[in-house]
């Protein structure tokens, strides 16, 4: 087994609703869905975002679309115009999520 960034297995987009950021990610190949399903848990995503996400993380699974929607609560420093962050709308948070490392077989090549 070896570690690769989630970006090798998935792509996605993120956006805001108030102080909630949604990060939707999709497996680049159907086979990758299971790896993501098992390893990219709400708990790991919460840890990954650390002090950026003050509330809970929820994961919604979409097996037919090979996708996952993560809701990061209280993740935008108040959100929108309230936030002093560089990216108060969480537009780049999907990219941040795709930094997360996942274990894949040695034979894996994207």
């Amino acid at each position: 087994m070896k570690k690769v960034p989630l970006a090798h297995l998935a792509h996605g987009r993120s956006g805001d609703k108030g102080d909630i950021c949604n990060c939707a990610i999709f497996a680049r190949k159907p086979d990758y869905y299971k790896i993501i399903y098992e390893q990219v848990t709400a708990k790991r995503v919460k840890e990954h975002f650390g002090d950026f996400c003050k509330g809970e993380v929820q994961r919604f699974d979409l097996p037919k679309l090979h996708g996952f929607n993560f809701l990061l609560n209280q993740a935008l420093d108040g959100g929108g115009t309230a936030s002093l962050r560089i990216d108060p709308l969480g537009k780049t948070y999907a990219a941040a999520l795709l930094r997360l490392e996942v274990m894949v077989p040695e034979s894996f090549s994207d």
Partner: peptide, 11 residues
């Protein structure tokens, strides 16, 4: 797919 879930909560 990227747009489908954009700013969506529970799908």
């Amino acid at each position: 797919k990227e747009q489908l879930l954009y700013e969506v909560g529970d799908p």
